[in-house]
């Protein structure tokens, strides 16, 4: 399909000129257009970004991802999402070449899009992708104690979801019910370590009485 309006055609042509690749267009049910362009390698990124910037595109965001699910996959790619004359153009850049899936570094596009700064730092820390010429290559969100590229390392679901509530809470609840579940190791016994058992079911509140919210509740209820 082809883009729907004049400005899209201009961008279509500009991108075609910059990258020698045609943009594919899809449409949602409201006929909003989404452009999709997959570059061959990172070298075409700069000309594409330049063409987009010159046509007044705004960088929405970038998504780095591993293309295939699987233990040993390292085929990373970055999708650059641009908002442009009421459409979203997604330019995808693969970071691997045939036969070699060690990710290559990507050039920074901050010189055309100021807000690329944070996005690039983010995929650097989350996916361990290197950036060339980044003005401020510091970590953004990820704590220093965590490994870079944490999002691309595959953690089995079972290892992630461990028993999340501690025993303390369980013990408090059981103690409030008067059930004795003292562990065999005396160190972690049931004598509630802090505070008297709190009876959650019947809180002994005498003062003050809360004003009823009836003034604002629906008149006839549900």
């Amino acid at each position: 399909m082809t883009p729907t309006n004049k400005s899209n055609e201009i961008v279509h042509d500009a991108l075609l000129q910059a990258t020698e690749l045609a943009t594919q267009w899809t449409f949602d049910v409201k006929q909003n257009a989404f452009g999709w362009l997959r570059l061959n390698n990172t070298e075409s990124l700069r000309p594409a970004a330049k063409a987009l910037a010159e046509n007044g595109a705004r960088l929405c965001t970038m998504t780095a991802y591993v293309e295939e699910r699987g233990e040993n996959s390292n085929k990373k790619a970055i999708a650059y999402h641009f908002a442009l004359a009421n459409t979203v153009v997604t330019v995808t850049v693969p970071l691997y070449t045939a036969g070699c899936d060690t990710p290559v570094a990507v050039p920074s596009i901050t010189s055309w899009f100021r807000n690329a700064d944070w996005n690039e730092r983010e995929f650097h820390e989350m996916f361990g992708i290197d950036i060339v010429d980044h003005p401020n290559p510091k970590r953004l969100f990820l704590d220093e104690r965590l490994d870079a590229g944490i999002m691309s390392s595959l953690i089995p679901f079972s290892a992630m979801v461990h028993g999340a509530a501690t025993r303390n809470l369980w013990e408090q609840v059981m103690a409030a019910k008067g059930v004795d579940i003292t562990g065999s190791d005396g160190s972690y016994g049931l004598e509630n370590p802090h505070g008297a058992p709190t009876d959650i079911s019947t809180p002994p509140i005498e003062e003050p009485t809360f004003t009823p919210v009836s003034a604002t509740a629906p008149e006839n209820g549900n």
């Binding site: 990820l142 704590d143 965590l146 944490i150 953690i155 992630m160 979801v161 461990h162 999340a164 509530a165 501690t166 303390n168 809470l169 370590p193 802090h194 505070g195 709190t198 959650i200």
Partner: peptide, 20 residues
């Protein structure tokens, strides 16, 4: 959020909680 790579809770691993 439990199980997220930067989640350190539940909080009573570190701090004694009196009321939940």
């Amino acid at each position: 959020f439990r199980g997220g790579h930067s989640i350190e809770g539940p909080i009573d691993r570190y701090i004694p909680v009196d009321v939940n």
